[in-house]
Design a protein around this nucleic acid. Structure first.
Lengths: 199, 199
DNA sequence: GTCTATACATTGATAGAC
DNA sequence: GTCTATCAATGTATAGAC
């Protein structure tokens, strides 16, 4: 049994992903949540406060997903984890819950919403960076590569993949971009001498 | 001396970049162009037609910039051109004129606007692909890399760089993502230089 | 706590004077 | 061709009944 408050935040979270912040009206949220006009203003001061609450919990979920990069004791090598995380299924044409928001002027000008977006990327970047450092230490990637920069580049491939997929209305573009990145990582891995058989 | 019509398209093009399509109202455009309420509806059927005209010419400009990838006879190697193009100055926090639009639901649902976005990416992808193919033929990159996929990955790094830069309100993130990609390309280049590939 | 009814500003477009 | 004045619809928020 979900409370009215929870139904409001869930509806808002869904619409934030689907349409973004500016394009989501209180009316839409109320209709989707199946509650009357005034209810939202009982639980929240307005659209903004509801959006912050909804977005915060959505980002929490998102952040949890990148924990895969940290599974250091499951027998996988760091580079395997990096490539595995890159290749996780991702809904390209829907876009990234976080990355999507960076193109909304109202979000970028809103310190609270922007902070949530930044939080998502910061956490992810830290995990990417650690995984890359470990791959370098393990000799899977050459030490000439700056770990933090490569981490951002890999993060950018995913974010850019969403953009390309949406531009063409096709998942294919996301998948190919990821494949290209993995192929380049493999080329760099081969160089270090710890070559892995890839059929 | 610029005509009223030109001032309208210029104002719309600027605002499309700054705020996107949905967030730009006719009123804003008219104010920026310095013309009265009705003038826009004399030259165009409405906001949509004006936006299409303005966006089309903006995309033409954008497409012209990636011609650098095609300068095959200026003494540069293909991989040099690729890295040079990656490292061109790009206004990260402003975002990409084309990529930005893919997060606007109204744009994605609009066949004419979406077609312009796709046109920009298609042209760019073709040029990236050709350059990568040439780099492989020249022995600068290993033949194990699928050219088209790497082309999309590099395109994605740039688009993702914009996203990261906007998420943090800092150009730095775009620059680092590009640096990471270049470092990885260099690692792959080193390999083909030292080892003979069985193409 | 939830609802209906309403207020008020903004959006996208039109009418019609000059 | 350009302008001012206006309109209907929508977006966001409030009032007040139950």
């Amino acid at each position: 049994m979900t409370s009215t408050r929870d139904r409001l935040t869930e509806a808002m979270a869904d619409l934030l992903w689907e349409r973004g912040y500016a394009a989501t009206s209180p009316h839409d949220v109320l209709a989707k949540a199946g509650v009357g006009q005034g209810s939202m203003y009982h639980h929240f001061s307005g659209k903004h406060e509801l959006a912050v609450a909804a977005f915060r919990s959505a980002i929490d979920t998102l952040i949890a997903e990148s924990r895969v990069l940290e599974n250091e004791n499951d027998g996988s090598t760091p580079l395997d984890r990096i490539e595995g995380y890159l290749q996780r299924p991702r809904p390209g044409t829907k876009g990234c819950r976080a990355g999507r928001m960076t193109q909304d002027p109202q979000v970028v000008q809103d310190p609270e919403l922007l902070a949530e977006v930044a939080r998502a990327f910061d956490t992810q970047a830290d995990r990417w960076t650690r995984a890359v450092e470990q791959a370098i230490e393990a000799g899977e990637l050459p030490g000439t590569i700056p770990a933090q920069d490569l981490a951002l580049a890999l993060s950018a491939v995913l974010q850019g993949g969403y953009v390309l997929a949406r531009a063409h209305g096709s998942q294919e573009y996301m998948d190919r971009a990821v494949r290209g990145a993995v192929a380049l990582l493999e080329a760099a891995r081969a160089q270090t001498g710890t070559t892995k058989e890839t059929a």
